[in-house]
């Protein structure tokens, strides 16, 4: 479980977060909405311990990570996988090395086992053929998918996935492909997910589409399910604070002028 308590974060003289509190339960999905610069990505980085808040607490399974040393944070991070906005692939490494980085870096890594996991994940994101390519040889969408595969590697695999604008700057077809993969992780693998986006289409898609595993092993994609995914809530940031937190129904019926303006 992730819990933020009254988190404040400033960059220079600019206050980005001014007292943020919310909770993400295991298995829950949360969509964090907000305009550019509202602090959405900052929240994800603070949860991963990539920065420290000026004040407030961030609890992961009840332990406050803001007081942890970098070496202790390394252990906490094993439970998380993060998909960065621009993929953040390591330029000097091949796709294989990028995806398997977390496992290859372990002291007694068995390269055959790691290779097998890397190949399985690249097959999952549909990039088996790109295994020996360098990041510079990949398109934006392919880089994003490699980033997704890299976030899923671990022993055991991460159970909480943080998506930072996973489809930003991609064409609709590629965006759809990425979102299908993210839905698979939520609906079939049961991963906890925090999706940061300013694109309402992406948010609606994440909330209202489903992937169902069929008995023959194939997966069925449904775009018009009867109701939003269970355990899914929205959070809208504005002016460094949470302007709205609640379900899709509550979002759509909110009387708050800013919320109504944001969702159009």
């Amino acid at each position: 479980m992730i819990e933020l308590r009254n988190v404040v974060k400033t960059f220079g003289r600019q206050a980005v977060l001014t007292g943020i509190s919310f909770t993400v339960r295991t298995g829950e999905s949360k969509i964090i909405l907000g305009v550019s610069g509202s602090g959405k990505s900052t929240i994800l980085k603070l949860i991963l311990g990539l920065g420290k808040p000026d004040s407030g607490e961030i609890l992961i399974h009840g332990c406050d990570i803001t007081k942890m040393k970098e070496s202790e944070l390394m252990e906490v991070r094993k439970e998380f996988g993060m998909i960065f906005q621009e993929s953040a692939l390591f330029d000097s490494m091949s796709v294989r090395e990028n995806v398997g980085y977390r496992l290859y870096a372990q002291p007694h890594a068995n390269s055959e086992t790691v290779d097998a996991q890397v190949e399985r994940l690249l097959e999952f994101v549909g990039l088996s053929d790109a295994i020996d390519k360098m990041p510079s040889e990949l398109s934006g969408g392919m880089r994003r998918r490699v980033g997704l595969a890299r976030a899923l590697v671990g022993d055991p695999p991460p159970r909480v996935l943080l998506y930072d604008e996973p489809t930003a700057g991609l064409d609709p077809v590629t965006s759809h492909r990425i979102m299908e993969l993210i839905l698979s992780l939520r609906d079939i693998e049961g991963a906890t997910g925090l999706l940061v986006t300013q694109d309402l289409k992406v948010a609606w898609f994440f909330a209202n589409a489903r992937i169902v595993a069929k008995p023959d092993g194939t997966r069925e994609f449904m775009t018009v399910p009867p109701a939003p995914a269970p355990d899914l809530t929205y959070l809208l940031l504005s002016g460094g604070q949470i302007r709205f937190e609640g379900t899709q129904q509550e979002l759509l019926t909110s009387k708050d002028a800013y919320v109504r303006d944001f969702i159009g």
Binding site: E70, M74, L89, D91
Partner: peptide, 18 residues
């Protein structure tokens, strides 16, 4: 510097590397 601005340093830390 390029690794910082393309978030590769953050990715390294996220993947458990100092």
């Amino acid at each position: 510097g390029s690794m910082v601005v393309t978030e590769q340093i953050s990715a390294l830390r996220a993947l458990g590397t100092d």
